[in-house]
Nucleic acid binder design. Structure first.
Lengths: 223, 223
DNA sequence: CCACAAGGGTTGCGGCAGCATTGCGGAGCT
DNA sequence: AGCTCCGCAATGCTGCCGCAACCCTTGTGG
């Protein structure tokens, strides 16, 4: 799960990013609308959080701009401009939800879940693979209905692979699923996660195997 | 147990919220119908307490509105408009109970219990875990039929975990089960409750253990 | 069939973030 | 006044995870 946060208050952005991280959500953050356009071109986000007052313009203008490129990524507007009239304006421009500042992270999470639930692309509310059922929104994995507790990063790798089981997943796709731009890695951390994950999957008899496609990425197969 | 109170007399609302709190019920309070609609969209309440005269309209109009969204959350109307004709009106619109002001909190509690007893979703009238039996409506826990008295917040944590035993419960879910929107916590209060609860559970041999899932939440397992 | 290179697998280590524990003090109840 | 509850913060501890060293596998060229 990866989202884009467009917000100019750095403190709020950092707090949000940390809080969302605890829910297994990887957040990219930008302050400027221009960068946001660029980022959405290069990445497929699951949702976008959008402020209105931004240094280079009204955030709402981003919505039609994004839609014009054919993307219907869910957008939640986060703003202090919270008059009923302003809310209507935002929603009519194509925002999926509108949340006034200040807000509780828990409410934002709930709204995110609601918005994603409605999003047809992400019918991934429950991913099944082998004997596993993965619930990425609630950060849980079960094997034959027995809960399995995994470290957060391993869980993210697992979910990213299981979501595309029987397909090769690019190395870079996996990295994008687990790390944001600020969390650069300069080692084989991903390989290490895969390694430990494999061991665990064998231990519990998960009914899946992770294969390597040399020079390309990884592939999860059911047994 | 979490309920929504829609009521415009602030004093009454605060008193009620406090009184219900003593019965282990977490109360979200709002004055406006618009907010109520929003809140029910984002939260799953166990019941709703509804006033009739509200600043933005007749409270009763909320009932069909809620039902239309597919929720059959029990609703108790609390109002000074207590003529027989008015009561019939309320109940026919889909309210589960109708209580005239002024009333005794004890009566409200009893009616709440009655209404919840009928509610099929909450087959959680008795939660069993290990050697414990928890009755969240009467705020009691027994271990091998011996009553155990726990501080209120610890009990709420316990019930929230026991209700989802063998499953990972997100930290945020636990917080939502114990605190309402106004009671923000900025410390490790939850951890402290868990810690003290664990000690007690061991002392009495409750037959359950609370495990931590690092970065995610907690998990109750039976032994 | 061997040499070599490059990519991947595995594993121990260490830093540090997140968790556990506990004493303190304020608030509320009796 | 004395009690318990509970939020808070200080302290110590645990285990995740990035890192890098080393080994194994695969592919290519001679």
């Amino acid at each position: 799960m990866r989202i884009l946060l467009i917000e100019d208050e750095r403190e709020l952005a950092e707090a949000l990013s940390a809080a969302l991280g605890k829910h297994g959500i990887v957040t990219d953050h930008t302050v400027h609308l221009v960068d946001a356009v660029e980022l959405t071109r290069q990445n497929l986000y699951d949702a976008i959080l959008l402020d209105r007052r931004l240094p280079d313009g009204e955030g709402l203008s981003f919505i039609p701009e994004l839609r014009r490129t054919g993307k219907d990524t869910p957008i939640i507007v986060l703003t202090a401009r919270n008059e009923p009239k302003e809310r209507i304006e935002g929603l009519d421009l194509g925002a999926d939800d509108y949340l006034g500042k200040p807000f509780l992270v828990e409410e934002l999470m709930a709204r995110l879940r609601a918005v994603l639930r409605r999003s047809p692309e992400l019918a991934e509310l429950k991913i099944t693979a082998g004997r596993m059922v993965i619930d990425p929104l609630h950060l849980s994995v079960t094997v034959d209905a027995v809960p399995l507790d995994l470290p957060r990063r391993e869980l993210l790798v697992l979910a990213a692979l299981a979501r595309r089981k029987e397909q090769t997943v690019l190395r870079s796709t996996l990295e994008a699923a687990v790390y944001n731009y600020e969390e650069e890695i300069q080692s084989n951390a991903l390989d290490a996660h895969i390694s430990r994950l494999r061991k665990r999957l064998i231990d519990v008899g998960a009914g899946v195997a992770i294969h390597n496609i040399r020079g390309v990425g990884y592939l999860m197969k059911e047994e």
